[in-house]
Write a protein that binds this DNA or RNA. Structure first.
Lengths: 343, 343
DNA sequence: AAACCTTACGAAAACGTTTGCGTGTGGAAA
DNA sequence: TTTCCACACGCAAACGTTTTCGTAAGGTTT
């Protein structure tokens, strides 16, 4: 087991000083051509690689980006990570990913861990618990120590920093509009409880679309689901004998569960009832019927977030002072779960 | 923007030496109670956190685990990561995740990057390209520098190290057996090309099961799919007018695609044809019909892999010398896509 | 021969820690 | 008064780099 070789060892072996080795490897003119070649040959032979830790300590930066997401086993978040990685690798940054598991405490712990030397900046989508608790001290603190933070998707209005979001309300409006334009009039919505920022926004978009079409909003058409893991019974209950012609679900799972429930209740999708989802993941693509949905372009979000962060990391102080909010366009992906109602 | 506070600053402020501060924070008896309290109060006030980088440099270990997987947007791999994180966090380790995107080059780059100071050891599932290329120098090199490596899922027989796998062949045999026991006799298999280790193993398991039942294997029942992204046409072609009563697919996507194709061809699953998959992901759970499948227990794999690695990292040298291969049990998850054929 | 300039290299500090050991101070024992 | 011993603290080295500055040797001017 040969240990990793250091400058010191090379220096000793070649009977020169550490500084000479360092300079030689950097092709400094200070060092004679002869020595340079000798050192480089030796370094190559022993597969010398500079120690990142030492460099980080010296340069006071780690060249790594910390990403903290609420769930790791989640298609949307992983696509975002994919985007972040893409940009990061291009620009020579490493990416550390941690999941908060939707726990406030774990979010804080992870953030502090990474903040104490492991990362130069953060890309973060906050945990449910954090949104509920409204405690953002860890984020504020990290920023006040000079580490930039970019929030995405599940953001916090009160925190002033760069943000990358989609226009959730607009996306939901687009979805609802689509249902309206194909002729649906009685549209139910399956959404989350209000403290989930994106859920609330999507609900708002749905309501806005209805108003624009002068369709009165009915409370009985709105289901706010508390426990996502047991949504089937709630949805089944809600949909039972309801006089509707369309369902807008704020995520994939609610959408496919709705279809499943509707099937059980003897309704056909899309013939009897149209269903539209939100987030374009594996399920939407491969389900039968495949789901019409709103694509969030997760990879783009990751790309933009990473760019914002790296700009701030490498920018001069002018850039550092201003914060930007990037809004990623959503798009309607038409598939089989909605179709035009024949008049 | 207050910078992060260091021992040095505290020392200066309190007019003591750095070592005194360090010792005081560690409650060393060398330091008077009075000073200790003063230092601790001050440190708390300024929210002092020791710098991980400096500690890593000093201790020659980073307390982080590098995880390299072929794809990040992939349910199975993320569940494994979930398991790794669980154990890692418990034991005070950080987790850095990189994806190789199934590229050999990126795998090497990531590994070298993390190996030069960022991680103490690795948990790795190799890229397709690496399996094809059979070039494992980066892994060997990392290990020879004293960093332990745990391979999982897509492993390499030739590399001697700890491994965590499922018995792919046995799992496939279980799946095929299940089809046989419910009365199927003409079972097709949808598998990958042979250089994907797990694909080949699963094919072997399928064949073994047939032999055990004295059912002759037919080449026309085996489809080795090259391009996973366009599997639908291949599968459609393959399944057309084929006289079979069951399909064993070595992954989720092949399974649902098969069902889709069969539907198009006017066959009902499970009534006309039974379908069984491999890997228990989102699709299997929520598809209609829900998929009978072989669960790989990804989280368990992650947990075991992390434990193996940490054992090696913290173990004395006896442990270091022996390598273990952990085989995680697979299990059959019965759902709707298979059912007993009435005689 | 004295003064000066290149060339080629080394010493040392710095990044932020931890820790073994040395040491000044004061009080107690002799 | 001298000797000794805790006590409480500081020094310095070490981890692996980079980089500024200093300098010895040798050659070139006057």
């Amino acid at each position: 087991m040969k240990q990793k070789v250091t400058l010191k060892q090379i220096a000793k072996e070649l009977d020169v000083s550490i500084s000479t080795v360092s300079k030689a490897l950097k092709d400094s003119v200070e060092i004679s051509l002869d020595t340079r070649q000798k050192v480089k040959a030796f370094a190559k032979l022993y597969n010398y690689k500079p120690n990142n830790i030492a460099l980080s300590l010296k340069n006071r930066k780690t060249k790594t980006i910390g990403v903290i997401i609420p769930e790791i086993v989640h298609h949307f978040f992983t696509t975002v990570i994919g985007g972040v990685e893409k940009v990061a690798n291009e620009k020579g940054y490493n990416v550390i990913i941690c999941s908060s598991n939707n726990s406030f405490d774990k979010e804080v712990i992870n953030m502090e861990m990474l903040a104490s030397g492991s990362a130069d900046g953060f890309i973060l989508s906050v945990a449910k618990e954090t949104q509920l608790k409204k405690d953002y001290h860890h984020i504020e603190e990290t920023m006040s120590q000079g580490m930039p933070v970019v929030l995405f998707d599940r953001i916090i209005d009160e925190v002033v920093c760069d943000k990358v979001i989609i226009d959730d309300a607009k996306g939901a409006q687009t979805a609802t509009n689509h249902l309206l334009t194909i002729g649906c009039k009685k549209i139910a919505i399956l959404t989350t409880v209000d403290y989930i920022s994106v859920g609330k926004l999507r609900t708002n978009g749905y309501l806005r679309a209805l108003r624009a079409y002068d369709i009165p909003e009915k409370e009985e058409y709105v289901l706010k689901i508390e426990d996502i893991d047991n949504c089937e019974t709630e949805i089944s209950e809600f949909l039972k004998d309801k006089d509707i012609d369309a369902v807008f679900a704020v995520n994939e799972l609610f959408a496919v569960t709705a279809i499943k429930v509707l099937n059980q209740q003897g309704k056909k999708v899309p013939d009897d009832i149209a269903v539209i989802g939100f987030t374009d993941g594996i399920l939407s693509k491969h389900f039968i019927p495949s789901l019409t949905t709103i694509s969030q372009h997760g990879e783009d979000m990751g790309i933009r977030a990473a760019k914002l962060l790296i700009d701030k990391l490498e920018g001069d102080d002018e850039v550092t002072e201003e914060y930007r909010t990037v809004i990623i366009d959503t798009s309607l992906v038409q598939r089989q779960s909605t179709k035009k109602i024949k008049e």
